[in-house]
Computed example of a mutant assay.
Amino acid sequence: MRKGLEQGTRGDRLTVLREPVWRTVCVYLTLALAGAGIGWLVGLLADWLVTLPWAPLQGPAELLASIPAPWLPVAGSVAGLVLGLVAQHEQLVIRLSDDRVELICKGREQEFSHDAVATAFRDGKRLVLIGHDGGELTRQECDLDAGRVADAFAEHGHPWADADPYEDEFRRWVPESPGLPEGANALLKARQKALEKEGPSDDDVRDLREELARLGVVVKDEKRRQFWRTFRQSGPA
């Protein structure tokens, strides 16, 4: 069995793709050790600051210097482990069977039937599912091995493409771009502000993507620049 792949019984034909256990353990250990090192350095810095006749933040430094030596590295390690939990919570888990695709990330679950997915592909570090109307069903950050993901989709009969079949239709967004549905430019403007301020993982950026999809607009990001295309919706927005 390949690393990071959990296979159910043949009757279930269930494949679960997630980060390998060894990689998750390495993340925890790295963050815990880094946290301990930072805690140790903070203790040394505090001890040095309190010896100076004057220095900024001497009050906090005195408080930190009064803490017994082992506790700051321990606190740093705990903080590192908490960051590890956050990182694990944000990892994408893919559950595949012959009749559905299920994506789990940040406590959010999305499920798509086999018939709803026209094609799936990787766009850089993102997994994208496209519906039969050309609209994107989802676009998720995915650090899983591309070959493993492609093989698992093919094994369960889900259509997989090596590239975006609509790549040539994307155009870079500029304010008041022509050809967009009414209201889309305003949403893209708001989304651009959130994208520049918070980055592509921000909730507002994601929510505005979904609002644009209701108008028949697909949007993707490259270096905090927005690219768009339209699609003909098969049902009401």
Score class of each variant (00 low, 15 high):
1 M>I: 05
1 M>W: 02
3 K>G: 04
4 G>F: 01
6 E>V: 00
8 G>C: 08
9 T>H: 06
10 R>K: 13
11 G>K: 14
13 R>K: 09
14 L>N: 02
17 L>T: 04
17 L>Y: 01
18 R>D: 01
20 P>M: 01
22 W>T: 12
24 T>Y: 01
25 V>M: 11
25 V>I: 15
28 Y>V: 11
28 Y>H: 10
30 T>W: 06
31 L>H: 05
32 A>F: 05
37 G>K: 06
38 I>G: 13
39 G>V: 03
41 L>H: 04
41 L>R: 08
42 V>I: 15
42 V>H: 06
44 L>G: 08
46 A>G: 04
47 D>L: 01
52 L>R: 15
55 A>S: 12
56 P>T: 03
56 P>W: 07
56 P>I: 02
58 Q>V: 07
59 G>L: 10
60 P>M: 09
63 L>S: 06
63 L>W: 12
66 S>Y: 02
68 P>R: 07
70 P>K: 02
73 P>L: 11
75 A>Y: 04
79 A>D: 08
82 V>M: 15
83 L>I: 04
85 L>T: 07
86 V>N: 06
87 A>M: 11
89 H>C: 03
90 E>H: 09
94 I>D: 00
94 I>M: 14
97 S>D: 10
97 S>A: 14
99 D>E: 15
100 R>F: 08
101 V>W: 02
102 E>D: 02
102 E>W: 00
102 E>I: 06
103 L>R: 05
103 L>P: 00
107 G>F: 05
109 E>Y: 06
109 E>D: 03
112 F>R: 04
112 F>Y: 15
117 V>Y: 09
117 V>R: 13
123 D>I: 05
123 D>S: 14
125 K>T: 07
125 K>R: 14
132 H>Q: 11
136 E>N: 12
138 T>N: 05
140 Q>C: 05
143 D>Q: 13
150 A>I: 05
151 D>G: 01
151 D>K: 00
154 A>M: 09
154 A>R: 15
156 H>M: 04
156 H>V: 06
161 A>I: 02
162 D>P: 00
163 A>I: 05
164 D>Q: 08
166 Y>L: 14
166 Y>A: 13
167 E>K: 13
167 E>F: 03
168 D>M: 09
171 R>H: 08
172 R>H: 03
175 P>Y: 05
176 E>S: 10
178 P>T: 13
179 G>Y: 10
186 A>S: 13
186 A>N: 11
188 L>A: 07
190 A>L: 13
191 R>L: 11
191 R>W: 06
191 R>T: 04
196 E>Q: 10
197 K>D: 15
197 K>G: 00
198 E>A: 11
198 E>Q: 09
199 G>W: 09
201 S>D: 14
204 D>T: 11
204 D>Y: 07
205 V>S: 00
205 V>A: 07
206 R>K: 14
206 R>V: 06
207 D>P: 02
207 D>E: 12
209 R>K: 15
209 R>S: 12
211 E>C: 09
212 L>P: 06
213 A>K: 15
214 R>D: 10
214 R>K: 15
216 G>K: 15
219 V>L: 13
221 D>V: 03
223 K>L: 07
225 R>K: 14
226 Q>G: 02
227 F>D: 04
229 R>L: 11
